[in-house]
Nucleic acid binder design. Structure first.
Lengths: 173, 173
DNA sequence: TCCTTATTGCAAACCGTTTGCAATAATATT
DNA sequence: AATATTATTGCAAACGGTTTGCAATAAGGA
């Protein structure tokens, strides 16, 4: 996972920080740069792990606090990914283009999807309810083509799912 | 909060239960009927509280386990409500009509919104990605007309938000 | 360079949720 | 209707992600 710095975005972080009296610590920069260059959405633990490669002394609480700050600054977004992977939260740098997060309930694979219909929802809401949309979170669960192919007759069971009894509170979704 | 039984839905629960070798215990019925007649989305704690009014001996673990079972049966849906209220999960009986959950980032008020654009997203996804949508969760954060009116010059701060320092990990969103 | 205070790291707490297990009770079987 | 089977319950304890208190540190303005 190469740590490529995105100049424009880093600058944005600095400006925003200054505006609000926030300080640009090495830890804050590091955490942001990890999120920026991450190929997938990461959770706090993963971010910590990655951060420790460059700053072994960094603490998880610093990660949590910075995620919280950036979230409030609107620099990053927090996702649940339909709890397909677990109960933790996942993070991504806020994208210019609104997108949905789609996950396969069978294999757990997630991907992003862009469609104009997303904006249509916001428009409708603003028009019909006089509501000013700040952000929309769309998470969709379904079955990808590959998994539907495999599903010959049996029920599709989520990969890696631990099923002891139907009452066990173990599995997700 | 009157416990009105919805015959059709209860029957549905019974059928579904039987199909899957699940048993219709008094606790399971009770929890379902609470969700059915709830005026808002409830979290596990609230459901337990409500359930104890009719069955003081019921345990929270029973609530959790049943929510998990019903979730897997597709009888109820689990929501995060954008974490506007907290990190817990909220539940609702699965609706026939797909709807979005919209919340005001200022006053925290939540409401449901129905628009054909929602189905358009699913259609696009099925067509463009050969994906079979099982369910979509749309959660939107924004500012209601009332709060936008109040926002004369200052920043809108979420009601009840505890803010000590900008770094405090206390506030939501 | 000094001062103010935002931020950090550590340890411990917190809270929603899950698990192990023996007792109980809902269904299927006889 | 009686019995056998096993899903479900309640209790107590654990779990895991996240948050808090606090003293030490360091960023950014004066």
């Amino acid at each position: 996972m190469p740590m490529v710095h995105n100049i424009r975005r880093q600058a944005g972080l600095a400006e925003l920080a200054q505006q609000r009296g926030l300080r640009l610590t090495s830890q804050r920069r590091l955490i942001f740069s990890i999120l920026e260059s991450a190929p997938t959405h990461l959770n706090a633990k993963q971010i910590l792990e990655e951060a420790r490669k460059q700053d072994p002394g960094i603490d998880q609480v610093t990660v949590y606090r910075n995620l919280s700050v950036m979230k409030r600054m609107g620099v990053i977004d927090e996702l649940d990914l339909l709890h397909l992977r677990g109960e933790e939260h996942y993070y991504e740098v806020r994208q210019l283009r609104e997108h949905c997060h789609v996950g396969c309930l069978s294999c757990g694979q997630m991907f992003e999807f862009v469609t104009p219909a997303m904006k249509a929802i916001n428009k409708a809401l603003e028009k019909e309810c006089n509501y000013k949309v700040a952000y929309a979170r769309i998470e969709i669960g379904g079955y990808c083509a590959k998994c539907r192919g495999k599903e010959e007759q049996g029920k599709v069971i989520q990969k890696g799912k631990r099923v002891r009894s139907l009452t066990s509170a173990t599995s997700r979704i």
